[in-house]
């Protein structure tokens, strides 16, 4: 599944840098946020802030970089289609 993403600013109160992730039919499936370096749990990692459809209710994973995050999202979406 080919995903695309688009930069977005998110107000989490701590972070701003984020991306909207779209599936191949250009539907929004996830919002990823790059965690602040001050975050004590996963500093600087990409966090699945919100997931839609098959990704809603997913546990809250954090990823080392955007590629890993998108790979994980693709796998999750493929499981449910």
């Amino acid at each position: 599944m080919s995903l695309t993403h688009q930069p977005v600013r998110v107000n989490t109160g701590f972070e701003e840098e984020g991306v909207l992730v779209f599936d191949e039919r250009h539907r929004l499936v996830a919002v990823l946020v790059r965690l602040s370096d001050r975050n004590e749990v996963a500093p600087g990692q990409w966090f699945l802030e919100a997931g839609f459809g098959p990704l809603s209710g997913a546990s809250y994973p954090a990823f080392a970089d955007l590629d890993v995050a998108q790979e994980w999202i693709s796998r999750r979406l493929a499981l449910r289609v």
Partner: peptide, 22 residues
């Protein structure tokens, strides 16, 4: 741990950490 706190208040450890910091 923040993971345990997250499992107790039904959120993520990332959210717990943000809330603790706030």
């Amino acid at each position: 741990t923040q993971v345990e706190l997250a499992d107790a208040i039904a959120t993520s450890n990332v959210h717990v950490n943000r809330v603790l910091q706030a």
